[in-house]
C-alpha cells in the first residue's frame, strides 16, 4: 500500500488549534480527515467536541443487566440443579443470591465500560500513527489526511497561518 501523505502543524495554544481546524473545514476538508492530537482534553473548545456522542453509559447499564442475570443463574440455577439439604431452609435463599446478583451487576458494568472505552478509543494500537512528541510539551497537533492535490495546497496554507510556523509532512 502506498503511503498516504499527511500534513500537520503544531499549534502553540488551543485558540490557534481551533482556528486551524476551522480553516481546514472552510477549505472543504471533511471532518473525518482532520486530526487533532493534544496532551489535555481541552473540553472548553469546539475542536475537542467532535465524536462526543457515545452509548457507553447505556452499554454499561446493559453490561450490568447481563452481569446481574448471570449472577442470578450462577447462584440460583446451580443450587437448584444439585440441591443439598439445608435443614428446612430454602434451597435458593433470597438474600445471598441478591448479594451475588448485586456484585455481578457491578462487575458487568465495570468490565463493559472498560472494554467499550478501549474499543471505541481504538486502544491499544501500537502501529505508527500521526503523532509528534512535541504534543507532550503542550503543542496541539492539527493535521489533515487523505488530501487531494488541490486541497493539499489549501490545507498547507491554512495550517501554516494558524500555527504560525512550519507545516510538516509525513507518510503514513
Amino acid at each position: 500500500m502506498p503511503k498516504k501523505p499527511v500534513i500537520y502543524a503544531l499549534c502553540p495554544d488551543p485558540e490557534a488549534a481551533q482556528r486551524a481546524v476551522e480553516g481546514l473545514r472552510r477549505a472543504g476538508i471533511e471532518a473525518r480527515n482532520i486530526a487533532v492530537v493534544s496532551s489535555e482534553p481541552f473540553e472548553g473548545y469546539e475542536f475537542s467536541r467532535r465524536d462526543h456522542q457515545t452509548p457507553m453509559p447505556w452499554l454499561a447499564a446493559l453490561g450490568g443487566v447481563v452481569g446481574g442475570t448471570s449472577g442470578y443463574f450462577l447462584a440460583a440455577m446451580t443450587q437448584r440443579s444439585y440441591p443439598l439439604p439445608t435443614g428446612n431452609m430454602p434451597i435458593v435463599a433470597l438474600w445471598p443470591t441478591g448479594v451475588i446478583v448485586y456484585e455481578m451487576t457491578m462487575l458487568g458494568a465495570i468490565l463493559v465500560t472498560l472494554f467499550t472505552m478501549f474499543i471505541s478509543a481504538r486502544l491499544p494500537n501500537w502501529r505508527a500513527q500521526l503523532y509528534d512528541p512535541a504534543v507532550s510539551d503542550g503543542m496541539i497537533l492539527v493535521g489533515a489526511t487523505n488530501l487531494s492535490q488541490a486541497s493539499r495546497i489549501e490545507a498547507n496554507r491554512v495550517l501554516g497561518e494558524a500555527a504560525g510556523g512550519q507545516v510538516k509532512e509525513v507518510g503514513l
Partner: peptide
C-alpha cells in the same frame, strides 16, 4: 501507553469511562 495519542475521541471516551466508573465504584 498502548499507542495513546490524545485525539478528541480518546479524551472524550476516557472522561466518559471515568465518570461511569466513579458512579459505579461508590456503591461497590
Amino acid at each position: 501507553a498502548l499507542g495513546w495519542r490524545g485525539t478528541p475521541r480518546q479524551w472524550s471516551r476516557l472522561e466518559t469511562a471515568m465518570h461511569i466508573m466513579a458512579v459505579a465504584i461508590i456503591p461497590v
